[in-house]
Computed example of a mutant assay.
Amino acid sequence: PDKKPCRVIVLDNNVPQISLYYKPIIGDSVPEASRRDWNVSYDLGGTWKEARKIGRKNSSLFKVDVVVYPEVSLKNLIITQIYQVLFNLSPAVEVSFWKGMRLTAQVVIPVYNDGYGRRAGKVHPGFLTLQQTVRLPYNIWVTGTLGMFNAERYGGDLRLLHTFKDERFSVEGRIGLTATQRWDGFEWTYGTKTRMTWALGANFYYPHYNVQASLKVEQYLLGEKGVRFDLIRHFRYASIGFYAMKAEGASANGGFRFQVALPPYKYKRKGYIPRVTPSKNMGIAYNAGNEQYYYRGYRANPGENIMQNNSFNPYFIKSELLNF
């Protein structure tokens, strides 16, 4: 608007994430705001309470996405073979029926299986989850998930994220109660003995280089407690970093991890016609210590990764506005 302030609030699954705010400078001769004039923050401003009462146009509720997740697994356990390889294409139906809710139903389609066993070579269900996210006052996000996860686990997962007034700093916590499950094709077996896992940590973001450092204390699926450190640099279409971890009764372990955005980078939707897209990004975590027993965990959603978790970071968004 001419000579008026403007605020754009970005929603994810109808839950507010960040706002971009522009306030014209008195005497400014520039007719319109440039990218560098926008302030990006978790602060939504006082107008959000009024804006959320206005009827929405082109809401994403009840609209279906079919997201195809490529999955690559590698292991080096045989001295005469460099790597054993498993490659899957795993399409997932994702839809939201109310604010903050997401239903995900996935099927795993093996494309290439060299050394991962008979069951891994069969078409079988993947994630089947019901997830709910709410934003609370003081920049607190809470996400609860029920259903079938990866790593042959099913159960419940609860996550919390809080960013401070200095938005470079944040704390997070996570707790899960899960049991074992196994698919042999579409035949499902499950266990009833539950295991509790949890994590509590702090994060620091260095805006100049878009580098994120995090330190966590965690409890893994076998009950061992440990410490984990991650150092990740985020780029427009990739996130690359290193991790190190040490748990009681286990050798120190670590490695590198990366996520890479998959083209196309922009998607269009036509009404309620299901939209078919590749996953926004794919990645690999390399286990340098070749640890197979300790440090085990799970993901509660197929799109859960370091790149997606940073996608609404205000400093990252601001850097993209300046470098576009």
Rank of each mutant, 00 (worst) to 15 (best):
Lys4Met: 13
Cys6Gly: 05
Val8Met: 03
Leu11Gln: 02
Leu11Met: 08
Asp12Tyr: 06
Asn13Gln: 14
Asn14Met: 14
Lys23Asp: 06
Lys23Asn: 09
Ile25His: 00
Ser29Ile: 15
Ala33Arg: 05
Ser34Phe: 08
Arg35Asn: 12
Trp38Leu: 01
Trp38Gln: 01
Val40Thr: 02
Val40Phe: 00
Leu44Met: 05
Leu44Ser: 02
Thr47Glu: 10
Thr47Val: 03
Thr47Ile: 04
Lys49Cys: 01
Lys49Phe: 06
Glu50Asn: 10
Ala51Asn: 06
Ala51Lys: 12
Ile54Arg: 05
Lys57Gln: 14
Asn58Asp: 12
Val66His: 04
Glu71Thr: 11
Leu74Ile: 03
Lys75Asn: 05
Thr80Asn: 04
Thr80Ala: 02
Tyr83Ala: 00
Ala92Phe: 04
Glu94Pro: 01
Ser96Asn: 04
Ser96Cys: 05
Phe97Pro: 07
Phe97Lys: 11
Met101Ile: 00
Thr104Met: 14
Ala105Tyr: 02
Gln106Trp: 05
Pro110Gly: 01
Tyr112Arg: 11
Asn113Gly: 01
Asp114Tyr: 01
Arg118Glu: 12
Ala120His: 06
Val123Phe: 04
Leu130Lys: 04
Gln131Ser: 15
Gln131Met: 12
Thr133His: 10
Asn139Cys: 06
Leu146Met: 15
Leu146Thr: 06
Leu146Val: 09
Leu146Ala: 13
Gly147His: 10
Met148Arg: 08
Phe149Cys: 10
Asn150Tyr: 04
Tyr154Ile: 14
Gly156Ala: 14
Leu158Asp: 10
Arg159Met: 11
Leu160Lys: 03
Leu161Trp: 15
Phe169Pro: 07
Val171Pro: 04
Gly173Tyr: 06
Ile175Arg: 09
Ala179Gly: 15
Ala179Asn: 15
Gln181Lys: 09
Arg182His: 13
Asp184Tyr: 09
Thr189Lys: 15
Tyr190Ser: 12
Thr197Cys: 03
Ala202Gln: 08
Ala202Glu: 11
Asn210Glu: 10
Gln212Met: 10
Ser214Val: 09
Lys216Asp: 11
Glu218Lys: 08
Glu218Tyr: 07
Tyr220Ala: 12
Leu222Val: 13
Leu222Arg: 14
Gly226Pro: 07
Phe229His: 05
Arg233His: 04
Arg236Val: 09
Ala238Cys: 00
Phe242His: 01
Phe242Thr: 05
Lys246Trp: 11
Lys246Pro: 13
Ala247Glu: 08
Glu248Val: 15
Gly249Pro: 03
Gly249Cys: 13
Ser251Arg: 13
Phe256Val: 02
Gln259Thr: 01
Gln259Met: 04
Pro263Gln: 08
Lys266Arg: 12
Tyr267Thr: 13
Ile273Leu: 10
Asn287Val: 03
Ala288Ile: 10
Glu291Val: 03
Tyr293Phe: 09
Tyr293Gln: 10
Gly303Leu: 09
Gly303Thr: 11
Gly303Arg: 03
Ile306Tyr: 05
Met307Leu: 10
Gln308Asn: 15
Asn309Trp: 11
Phe312Arg: 03
Tyr315Leu: 03
Tyr315Pro: 02
Leu321Val: 00
Leu322Ile: 05
Asn323Leu: 05
Phe324Ser: 04
